[in-house]
Design a protein around this nucleic acid. Structure first.
Lengths: 146, 146
DNA sequence: TTCGTAATATAGCCAAGGCTTCATATTCTA
DNA sequence: TAGAATATGAAGCCTTGGCTATATTACGAA
């Protein structure tokens, strides 16, 4: 440890607990966001989103994708009928678009500060879900002014 | 969606699946890292880490913290005896230090690109776990050269 | 038009990480 | 030093997000 060792942050237990709680909340939205974005991409690419394709690209088994779709439906983000493809509701599509923009911004910012593209793409997959609107705004401003 | 939306990234399904898989792996380490860092902080501040304090600062109920400590012990990161405090193994301490450095670097980078401090602290809590060594190196270089 | 294959769904399992409730150990104080 | 207050542990439940194995449905080719 260096001399600049910061003493543990001066933050009240309550406030810190809140931060962790918010981080956990974001995490619970992350998978929804990933699936919604994926479904949007597949529809854009193939005109439809099949469960098998979703599963393949997410790197999970089919039943896992089916369950995720069920959760999306429960949350009003997607629709589907048995043995038919999966579609996004307006709400789902709006979320997909927002997520896509955020993803690109995060990747661009990482690259702008010197992260190699491949690494930027990979890390962004996890980072993006924790980027708040305010932080995203700052990223956009930085990329514009740079 | 419009016709000329950004075309979905040109990436093979397999490669994309790998990215998601890696993001999931990192996520499964995230909580371990948070607890290890917290325990390190508490020991630095109070000379010991009590389960009650850990729980309070993590924003969870005591049994949740106890379970987490059990997992840390299983992973060889911490030790504890009933009704005594929790301590880090060498491995746990090394992880705690690495995590702490990474956390600070992430916060500093966010601030450097214009994110308000409060927001930076909060978002970093989730972002840090997805920052690879390579990305961290880039952050450090950026902060130095700036 | 039927039938085999591929896609989808269902059921049931596991681990993680939350929770509450209740029992037990420790510590503090009167 | 006994008893109350506090801290810890144990048990059991819930949800998520993985999995495998086993139906069932849809569809294209013979």
């Amino acid at each position: 440890m260096t001399e600049h060792d910061t003493p543990p942050a001066e933050i009240s237990p309550t406030e810190q607990a809140g931060r962790f709680a918010r981080a956990r909340e974001k995490q619970s939205m992350a998978i929804l966001e990933d699936y919604v974005e994926m479904i949007g991409d597949l529809i854009a690419m193939h005109g439809e989103a099949r469960v098998a394709d979703i599963a393949e690209r997410m790197g999970v088994a089919h039943p896992t994708a089916t369950k995720a779709v069920a959760r999306l439906k429960r949350e009003g983000l997607a629709t589907s009928r048995p043995y038919r493809g999966v579609f996004l509701t307006d709400k789902g599509e709006a979320l997909a678009n927002w997520v896509r923009v955020r993803h690109r911004t995060v990747v661009d910012l990482l690259i702008a500060v010197g992260v190699p593209q491949e690494t930027a793409e990979a890390d962004a997959e996890g980072i993006e879900h924790h980027v708040s609107r305010r932080t995203l705004k700052a990223f956009e401003a930085y990329l514009t002014d740079k």
